[in-house]
Design a protein around this nucleic acid. Structure first.
Length: 568
DNA sequence: TCATGCACTTAGCAGTCTTATC
DNA sequence: GATAAGACTGCTAAGTGCATGA
């Protein structure tokens, strides 16, 4: 297997260098069945009604379907937001008949509760299905996946990531999204572009329909696409991360980050020089790069105002997002960051910076309003062009990968020793992973049952402690009776309980530290898997303890090729 | 040079499946 | 076998960055 990857690695390195010469060709043959469509709308039974102003109304099919989208979300916080309500109501009215439109003109008079109750019952029914019924559904699902979930790429069967067309519904943006609640329309085959090879079996459109277009573009990796109506974005059917194509791309990403490791000191020297430059633009570039490097901030592309939630990255930071403190918490030159990043996740950080950076920031903020751009002379395109001159292939996002992987490697080296138990090693790993997640600001809502499950663990801990005490007492007693067998038994029990206790305590520590931090994102997207694989080999940790099945599939390339002495 | 479109990666959430515990 | 907790997975939104064309 190793030989296989070495060979692939050689071929791949070659292909990669030759990518341009190859005109960006991604495959030679591509065959698939096309996407799978969600089921047709199933009308509500006649006894389930929509009530308006106290009167029950039978809605037209189109209006009823959209009403059910809202009814299904009734217990969600979304539906309490006025933007959501307004967008939904406007779009809903567009689906209504003339007559319905005339009749229904205030959302506050609409009563969706009967519909909501009906769907709740449906969910309960589904839950209460027998094992056999559930098995039938599962098998049907497996059959679908078998039929639609794979494609043939260059003769190899590859798993598709998302083979289903997104069903219609209400758009749920993140944060204060101006388009939340808008109707995501049903996608028809007539909206879909199919991409496959010319000589392959062209997927058949569902009966009575035809594709918007069938194309044979071997420079892209997607199988099908359509334009979504809410934001006008393209959506794609693409390969699963376990596919060769995606794996190679992933590998390439980490190789670029490793290259940066060799160059980063030079780049740092250069941007520090920039802080002193006469030109404002160069100074801004230097400080922005410093933030991207030191804090692993995202690049911060420009966004169309009013079309999406108001979020920023480095280049799009505004004056209002930072506060300068000559002194804070006993430290000099502290920059306080407070802004919403990707997915409207808050980034808050107090960072001591070098005096020259501090002075520059003051300068950038002079005579500006809070809503003005902090770095008004630069943007991500300019920044990336500059970075590319320092190192081919280098862009702002590479710093995040580099920073994350370097942190994991350093932390693992620091935190693990060979004499640790498996549990201690795993805690070390999670701590290293956590350091990265904190750096990248990967947050999650604390699990809803967190407090309760923590209490359960505390109770368990108490029980374990008590049992241990009891066992020790027994042990002592047995010892005086000089019955060897009993002594041994009790000793074993004491040992077992002590181990259990220790395990439980470690688990709890891990859980508490992890409360609002999401480890998965960095693990999946930023940490070179070879670091983890090598660590597992070196410290005798089964790889299954670090990566689950999906992750092992995604990182198959790394698992096969990595030796225990690999360092990022 | 700039705007725009396209392709692809990164992201958190929520529903589902699995496992542990009684 | 039931139940609850936790892990996993799928979904789809929201980023990045490159290409293209005026």
């Amino acid at each position: 297997m190793k030989l296989f990857w070495l060979r692939i690695s050689f071929i791949f390195a070659y292909l990669w260098e030759e990518d341009n010469a190859n005109n960006g060709k991604k495959w030679s043959t591509l065959e698939h069945k096309g996407p799978f469509f969600p089921p047709e709308y199933e009308p509500l039974p006649s006894n389930v009604c929509f009530v308006y102003n106290g009167k029950s109304i039978k809605l037209s099919l189109a209006a009823e379907e959209v009403a059910t989208f809202y009814a299904k979300m009734l217990d969600h916080e979304y539906t309490t937001k006025s933007v959501f309500q307004e967008n939904f109501f406007n779009d809903w009215r567009e689906e209504m008949t003339e007559e319905e439109r005339e009749q229904i003109n205030k959302l506050s008079k609409c009563d969706f509760s009967h519909m909501a109750k009906y769907f709740l019952e449906k969910t309960e029914e589904k839950k209460a299905m027998t094992k056999e019924q559930k098995q039938v559904l599962k098998e049907e699902n497996n059959r679908l996946t078998e039929e639609y979930g794979f494609c043939l790429l260059d003769g190899h069967k590859e798993k598709i990531g998302n083979f289903r067309v997104e069903p219609p519904g209400l758009f749920r943006g993140r944060g204060e999204h101006p388009k939340m609640g808008k109707l995501k329309k049903r996608i028809l085959p007539e909206d879909i572009t199919i991409n496959c090879s010319k000589d392959s079996k062209i997927p058949e459109a569902p009966k009575g329909h035809r594709w918007r277009k069938v194309q044979h573009d071997d420079t892209v990796t997607w199988l099908a696409s359509w334009v979504e109506n809410v934001q006008g974005n393209l959506k794609y059917i693409m390969l699963n991360p376990s596919s060769k194509l995606k794996g190679e791309k992933d590998w390439q990403k980490y190789e670029v980050a490793r290259k940066l490791k060799l160059k980063v000191e030079t780049i740092r020297r250069l941007y520090r020089e920039d802080w002193k430059n006469r030109e404002m633009k160069i100074r801004q570039r230097g400080v922005a790069l410093y933030f991207i490097d030191k804090l692993a901030l995202r690049a911060g592309n420009e966004k169309e105002e009013g079309e999406t939630a108001d979020t920023v990255g480095c280049c799009s930071l505004r004056v209002e997002h930072i506060t300068l403190h000559e002194e804070k918490g006993g430290q000099e030159f502290v920059v306080e960051f407070d802004f919403l990043g990707k997915d409207s996740i808050r980034y808050y950080n107090e960072v001591p910076v070098e005096s020259r950076v501090f002075r520059n920031l003051k300068l950038f903020m002079e005579n500006k309003d809070p809503e003005d751009d902090l770095f008004d002379r630069i943007n991500t395109i300019y920044l990336n062009k500059h970075l590319n001159q320092s190192m081919p292939g280098l862009t702002a996002k590479v710093f995040r990968t580099f920073n994350a992987s370097t942190t994991l490697q350093d932390q693992l080296n620091k935190l693990t020793t060979a004499d640790m138990t498996l549990e201690e090693k795993l805690l070390s790993y999670n701590r290293a992973n956590r350091a990265v997640a904190i750096l990248c600001n990967h947050q999650r809502a604390a699990p809803k049952t967190f407090e309760k499950s923590m209490q359960n663990m505390l109770d368990k801990l108490d029980v374990a402690k008590m049992e241990l005490k009891e066992a020790k007492k027994e042990h002592k007693k047995a010892g005086t009776e000089r019955t060897r067998k009993l002594v041994e038994k009790k000793e074993a029990a004491v040992k077992r309980l002590e181990e259990q206790l220790k395990k439980l305590q470690l688990q709890m520590t891990d859980r508490e530290e992890n409360k609002v931090i999401a480890l998965g994102t960095s693990k999946l997207n930023y940490l070179d898997p070879r670091i983890s694989v090598a660590w597992c080999k070196k410290f005798n940790v089964p790889i299954e303890k670090i990566y689950n099945k999906t992750q092992r599939d995604k990182f198959a390339w790394a698992i096969d090729m990595t030796e225990e002495d690999f360092q990022f």
